[in-house]
Amino acid sequence: MGLLSKKDAALIKDPLFDNNPITVQVLGICSALAITAKLEAAIVMAISVLFVLSLGNVIISLMRNIIPSKIRIIVQLVVAAALVIVVDLVLKAYAYNLSKTLSVFVGLIITNCIIMGRFEAFALANSPWKSFLDGIGNSLGYGVILIIVAFFRELLGTGALMGHQILGDPVKKTGLYALGYENNGFMLLAPMALIVLGIVIWVQRSKNPKLIEENK
């Protein structure tokens, strides 16, 4: 990345792989379980978190020297909540159909531990530009996992991706279903999200020895 110094690039790259907020830091699990039954919802959620986290990080970073430490968590909450409401209103006004998909998950963005976590751990102590990159990196790391999990859940659970049936028609028994394949409805329930996530973590750790803790 020619535009960014090595340190800055690491701010984006680290949370994508070695320090992924979901698979390594195990933050934001709640929403990763709740909204990954469909790929479309996962993508919308990833984009919304990207917006809220990167902008919120910048705002918190700009205010970092004037925020009273006693109420900093409340200040962070207010910033996150205000941004989410603005996003929701703008979507309702200009992308009405998209907002209908998103509206259920708005509350979940505010409660997303990653947002509060990055505000508290990074933006309060770093410059706006660095915080912005950190926000982008972490929300991308979050989004990637969300999309991977949603891909498998929607595909195996309903035989569809983005709402399009791609394995054939389960009712009329065409495509793969003609061969006796059945959708696994269990994939749509939250426990399977946890299991899929566990498999993702397993794969990542076996590929990346840095992440394996030593057994003493």
């Binding site: 909204i35 039954a37 469909k38 919802a41 509206s103 259920v104 859940r153 929607e154 659970g157 309903t158 749509l188």
Partner: peptide, 8 residues
Amino acid sequence: HKGETPGL
């Protein structure tokens, strides 16, 4: 619907 379970 406003908030039925996605996929179900």
